[in-house]
């Protein structure tokens, strides 16, 4: 999916947990996430902590979108 959207001419960040699969399918900007059932959350923490976690991940995502890349890049 991520490749077809990139092909349409729009930069795309793939936020996912299993990074090797994202590499195999050919995503160019990859942000690793928390866990498969809750990529952008953590049910074990408080709602405020969870939001803070999500905010940090999305900050990283905005950075990824603002960064020129030449090849597949994982934004750790």
């Amino acid at each position: 999916m991520v490749k077809e959207i990139e092909r349409a001419g729009i930069p795309v960040v793939h936020m996912c947990t299993v990074v090797p699969i994202s590499m195999t399918v050919g995503a160019n900007r990859i942000v690793p996430t928390v866990a498969i059932p809750y990529p952008l959350g953590n049910p074990a923490s408080t709602p405020d902590e969870e939001k803070e976690l999500r905010r940090k991940l999305l900050d990283k995502t905005l950075d990824a979108l603002s960064t020129e890349v030449e090849d597949q890049t994982v934004f750790e």
Partner: peptide
Amino acid sequence: YARAIGEELVADGVDAVILTST
């Protein structure tokens, strides 16, 4: 699906996409 979605996104003037997977 992604091709169709991509076309709509372009038509809507979207500048960037965040795609999340589980």
